[in-house]
């Protein structure tokens, strides 16, 4: 795990490094990130906010130059031949800028002209995408009045106008209603089935789990795990058990139960989850261990409020790779984000 740079990927990011700012305020956004995305796959980039997802995608889409490293798309060097690479890519950015005063159709026409589509081809393609993404009702209204979901669909359409070989999406469903999200998922699957390579970043585990053929987990500007979701889960081995002796326990009781449970044969990695009412997360080697566990708890006269067992999830893969859950990682950086600084980074 860790080294994602297989040689045959359609997209190959190799040893990317990038820092923002200078001196003491410098932030290392990418620290030797390598990634290889196979042609025709739907590839997920999973990581908490601030882990370097957006920076990698911006570098891939030629919006940002890395301090070091290389970017290849379909054999083309993106740093040396950015325009050739731009023709192959469609990019849906996270913070989407639209011209509020134009209608959706006018914006798509502009985009089509920037891709040098011939007028008739352009208009037919726009009609196709309006149909595909269900935009017919509002495409001739001004963008200023669009909801988040409408904007995102318009953006997806504008990234698809020139039939790119590679579609890159930065957190495409953040803040969307369930319906828009489902619509976007469907389109992404259709595109993949039609041969388009789709690379999306997300900090939603379930999104990557539901969509991606392959995924990379990014943490502090590096890839720390990479592979097929099912394989990654299977590689962890064992089942996950969440144990609560009471709905809300306390630290002292949790520690006592932890000691008891650790003594059971076939139990590994007992962790106290403070953020969930001092529940215990543990890994059991096989079915029978759970029965043994129940007996021991009963002997110790401990109640059982809940005892849930599941196969390893992507969250467990994340936990295993990073030592913390994705939610904790999100919480850790939640207060550290500086929107002003982020805007500056994206501004030319």
């Amino acid at each position: 795990m860790g080294d994602g740079a297989a040689v045959d990927g359609l997209i190959q990011l190799h040893d990317l490094r990038k820092s923002y700012g200078r001196g003491e305020k410098a932030v290392q956004a990418l620290d030797g990130l390598s990634l290889s995305v196979p042609a025709g796959s739907l590839y997920g980039l999973l990581g908490p906010n601030g882990s370097g997802k957006t920076t990698s995608l911006r570098i891939l889409c030629t919006l940002l130059a890395p301090d070091a490293g290389s970017v290849r798309v379909a054999g083309l060097d993106a740093l040396a031949q950015p325009r050739a690479v731009r023709r192959l890519l469609g990019y849906v950015a996270q913070e989407v800028a639209i011209d509020k005063i134009l209608t959706g159709r006018e914006l798509l026409r502009l985009q089509g002209d920037l891709h040098h589509l011939e007028g008739g081809v352009r208009n037919r393609r726009i009609a196709e995408l309006v149909e595909l993404l269900g935009m017919g009702e509002w495409i001739d209204r001004r963008c200023g009045g669009y909801s988040g979901g409408m904007r995102r669909r318009l953006d997806l359409a504008s990234a698809l106008l020139h039939r790119p070989r590679v579609l890159v999406l930065d957190e495409p469903t953040v803040g969307l209603d369930i319906e828009s999200r489902a619509a976007i998922w469907t389109v992404l699957r259709q595109l993949r089935d039609g041969g388009t390579t789709v690379l999306l970043s997300s900090h939603y585990l379930e999104e990557v789990d539901a969509l991606a053929d392959r995924l990379a987990i990014i943490e502090r500007g590096r890839v720390i795990a990479e592979g097929v979701p099912a394989d990654l889960k299977q590689a962890l081995g064992g089942d996950r058990v969440t144990l609560r002796v009471r709905e809300f326990s306390d630290a002292e009781e949790a520690a006592r139960v932890q000691r008891l449970v650790q003594g059971c044969a076939g139990v590994r990695q007992v962790v106290v989850n403070q953020s969930q009412g001092y529940s215990l997360n543990l890994v059991v080697e096989h079915e029978g261990v759970v029965e043994q566990l129940r007996r021991q708890l009963a002997e110790a006269q401990l109640p059982v409020f809940a005892l849930a067992q599941s196969r390893p999830s992507l969250d467990d893969v994340y936990l295993q790779a990073t030592g913390r859950t994705l939610m904790d990682a999100e919480l850790a950086v939640a207060g550290l984000r500086d929107p002003k600084e982020e805007r500056k980074q994206s501004m030319r």
Binding site: T62, L63, A93, A97, Q111, M347, R348
Partner: peptide, 17 residues
Amino acid sequence: FDREFGFLNRLLVAPLR
């Protein structure tokens, strides 16, 4: 305004000649 609102970035990912 295009710089500030990121519209410029939209133009820059297109393969402008």
